[in-house]
Amino acid sequence: MESEASMSLMDHAVAGMPVDSLFICDAHTHMGPYFNFLVREEGSPAAMVRMMDRLGIDASIVSPHLAIVGDYRMGNQHVYEAAEQFPGRIIPFVVVNPNYPRAEVEAEVAHWHEHGGIVAFKFHSSLHGTDCLNEGYAPAYEYANEHSLAILSHAWNGEGGAIKVVGKLAERYPNVQFVNAHSASGWPVIEASIALAESCDRVWLDLTGSRLVYRGVERMVARVGAHRILWGTDSPFIDPRPGLGRLLCAELSDDDKRSILGLNAKELYRLT
């Protein structure tokens, strides 16, 4: 028998053993059922935490599926309730939908500022049928700027493309950190994400994706550095195990893996 201490991170993945010696944060997750496919156990917080325990994930930052589709306010309510049920394990993103009146969005932000606090925002401009320059997002940008928070966006879409969009926003909101979701979903996306990160030092790249190309993460680390890469899985939209295995088995140093798996998220989202 090999002792756990002598096992590499890759050994853990191949043996299916949780990596309990590291702080691991899944920095991009969802919660609940979804219209387009089966999510087993309805993607409940309990099912998610059970999966986290199985893999050695300490914390997950969550935006419920409901929030990124039809009802952002009810979705936010659900995730704050889950965070109460699983303190320290489930951490809420606040989702805003810019298609609703500014006063309503402002009230939503103010509500969670007062009831639980806001760690970060999540935008899903694609599912909300808009782009990241929509003025309806202003209450979230302004709050994030005032409190030096990060915003995770499914895509930094808008006129001129992601580099121009983030460039404009970074100038307007100098204290905001911009997390680019799904940065590793195929080679063209990887190249575009690297270019985005190279264009602005407040861009972070999130690894969430369903098609994990051979040595894609290694290219991202070589070009951008491990210090600006965040590990996320989209769970329970997608099963978190492939994403974990991909990183544990990557040809990267253990220090880089530690940073990506949790330490970067801890710093960016000020997790305690």
Binding site: A13, V14, L212, V213, Y214, R241, L244, G245, L248, C249
Partner: peptide, 18 residues
């Protein structure tokens, strides 16, 4: 799916299965 995709993901999907 080598050499398109990587190995750790599919191995973990099986190894961590309940």
């Amino acid at each position: 799916a080598l050499p398109e995709l990587e190995t750790g993901g599919p191995m973990a999907l099986v190894a961590y299965a309940d």
